[in-house]
């Protein structure tokens, strides 16, 4: 099957600072890819670059989507893609929605702009979408302002707007991080259902390895602007190969075991800027040696399992 999205050697630089450095991945139709990493690793920047929502950034590489390079489209063409073929939802739905416009109108606007529906038809479509994303009393909620809705409800509105034009790709940037755990469970279930039903591919950006485990087919782990490991989700959790991935998995407290044990830690703290020579993880890595002064390439060991580490077994 040919890829829906093929990102090749993506780089993003702000002035002299490289935030994303040579990121490549591809996504099959209907597939869910987890993009995992800690703050400043470039996971959100990667998504914003694909949506061309970064001002003042220098982009490099390519991102082929349906025969076009998203990074090379002019603004008018990008506008037709954004929201219609590729949609995005954000961490904080409260600020992603316009505070002074009724939420129903914000969803209807997406349909009107991209599908050219009339006012009445677009409002009817918004009502359908509100029902689909499980908003209780949808007729009344259409007329609500964002501040009248809870965080979980706002995220449902965001999802309704995102799926309004049946996009083939959804970029979800920490969609449940701001929500309570029982509401997170509801929203993740909703995302699962809408992506399955529409065969929509999802890039799920998160720092939460539990969310990744339950939601994704494949995972790419980012560190300091680069992908350091990627594999099928089951493989990554069962046989992590990069020392950073192993460190991350070891430092997550388990709910039901090993309570008395010390948690494994990764010494030091996250590096943000990617303008380091050699392997970016080397200063914190227990296995680092001379060879790590040179940056390791991301290479395929076992089938579909890519690792950027000289020491990976």
């Amino acid at each position: 099957m040919s890829a829906l999205l093929d990102v090749c050697d993506l780089s993003v630089a702000f002035g002299d600072t490289r935030a994303v450095d040579g990121v490549s991945f591809s996504l099959a139709p209907g597939e869910t890819l987890g993009l995992v990493g800690e703050s400043g690793c470039g996971k959100s920047t990667t998504a914003l670059a694909l949506m061309r929502l970064l001002r003042g950034a220098r982009l490099g590489g390519s991102a082929m989507f349906g025969g076009r390079d998203l990074l090379a489209l002019d603004e008018a063409a990008m506008r037709r893609v954004r929201g219609a073929e590729v949609a995005m939802i954000f961490q904080d739905p409260g600020t992603a929605l316009h505070p002074l416009i009724r939420v129903g109108d914000q969803v209807a606007e997406v349909v009107r702009a991209h599908l050219g529906l009339s006012g009445g038809d677009s409002r009817a479509r918004a009502l359908d979408l509100f029902r689909k994303v499980g908003i209780a009393a949808p007729e009344q909620r259409l007329r609500a302002y964002p501040h009248e809705l809870s965080g979980g409800m706002c995220q449902r509105v965001m999802i309704a707007a995102a799926i309004a034009c049946s996009p083939r790709l959804l970029l979800a940037d920490e969609p449940t991080t701001a929500l309570d755990v029982t509401v997170q469970a509801q929203i993740l279930e909703l995302l699962r259902a809408v992506s399955r039903e529409a065969g929509m591919a999802v890039v799920l950006i998160t720092h939460d390895l539990g969310v990744v485990a339950g939601m994704t087919d494949r995972v790419a782990v980012m560190y300091a602007g680069r992908i350091v490991e990627s594999a099928a989700t089951d493989t990554l959790f069962a046989r992590p190969a990069h020392p950073y991935t192993r460190g991350l998995l070891g430092s997550v407290p388990a709910l039901d075991s090993g309570w008395e044990e010390e948690l494994a830690t990764i010494p030091g703290s996250v590096r943000t800027a990617a303008d380091v020579r050699g392997c970016p993880f080397a200063p914190r890595c227990p296995l680092a040696s001379e060879v790590c002064r040179e940056a390791p390439p991301l290479i395929e060991g076992a089938a579909g399992h890519l690792v950027a580490c000289w020491k990976a077994a």
């Binding site: 469970a185 939460d208 089951d234 998995l249």
Partner: peptide, 20 residues
């Protein structure tokens, strides 16, 4: 609570509460 283990994530029973 999401568990960082894909195999168990698929198997476990989940209680989806109504509302907030």
């Amino acid at each position: 609570v999401p568990v960082p283990d894909p195999v168990r994530e698929r198997q476990r029973g989940r209680i989806l509460l109504v509302g907030e």
